Simulated assay, not measured.
Amino acid sequence: MAKHKTSKLKPIVSVKQMAEMLNLSRARFYQLLDEGIFPQPIYDLRTRRPLYDARLQKRCLEVRDTGIGDNGRYILFYSPREKSESQPRKQNKGKTTANLKYQELTETLNSMGLDCSAKEAGSAIEEIYPEGIEHEDEGVVIREIFRYLRQKGV
């Protein structure tokens, strides 16, 4: 029943790569990591960066395939949606470009307990990252935006 081949395992992968291997967003992966569903990463002593070695990658893939978390709890994973040309695109009535651009970020911040809009998230990004976030680590951006908006009382 395993969908993943262990031959595709790399000696070491980042959290982002591990989430991609599991067909999960990084936000959802971190959520399940906090719940104990997936094993905690190891950390590079020099960079303090979280990493998954081949053994941990295999364990994460087993959790995804079996639906039994590292903590023994059952977890249901939904299949990723297939993108097809035949599906009609949603009309974005009343949504600005900024709202669409920061929609996923806003959803992540809302799931973390902040009640903020895409406009507020966009303003925070412009304030903290005037050069943009294209080359920034997504997890760091989320953390910094969360802290910034929390200080602003959002």
Rank of each mutant, 00 (worst) to 15 (best):
Y43P: 15
R143S: 01
N23M: 02
K8W: 12
L105N: 01
T97W: 06
A121Y: 09
L24K: 04
I37N: 06
H4G: 05
S111F: 00
M1N: 08
E62C: 12
I133Q: 01
N23W: 03
L61F: 07
L32M: 15
Y78T: 00
S86G: 03
T108G: 02
E126P: 02
R55H: 13
I42V: 13
A124N: 00
L61E: 10
R73F: 10
K101H: 06
A19R: 02
K90G: 04
K58Q: 15
D44L: 08
T108F: 01
G132F: 12
V141H: 05
K16V: 11
Q31F: 11
I145F: 13
I75T: 01
D65T: 01
C116S: 12
E120V: 02
Q103V: 00
L45T: 11
A2G: 07
I142C: 04
N99R: 05
E20S: 08
C116W: 07
K83E: 06
R81I: 08
K10M: 10
I37M: 09
R49W: 12
E62G: 10
Y30A: 02
F77M: 04
E104P: 06
P39A: 01
Y52C: 00
R89C: 14
L61Y: 06
A19K: 10
A27Q: 08
H135S: 09
D115Y: 11
C116G: 06
K152W: 13
S14Y: 03
R55E: 15
K101W: 11
N92G: 10
E120Q: 11
F77H: 01
M18N: 07
T97C: 05
N92K: 07
R143G: 05
I128F: 05
R46G: 06
V13P: 15
R64H: 08
G132T: 01
V154T: 10
Y74C: 00
P11W: 03
I12V: 14
A2L: 14
V15H: 07
Y102L: 13
P130T: 02
A19P: 13
R150I: 04
L9E: 05
I37L: 03
I75K: 04
I37S: 04
G153Y: 12
E35N: 10
R55G: 02
I145R: 07
R73K: 14
R28Y: 02
R143W: 04
L32A: 11
S25D: 02
F77S: 02
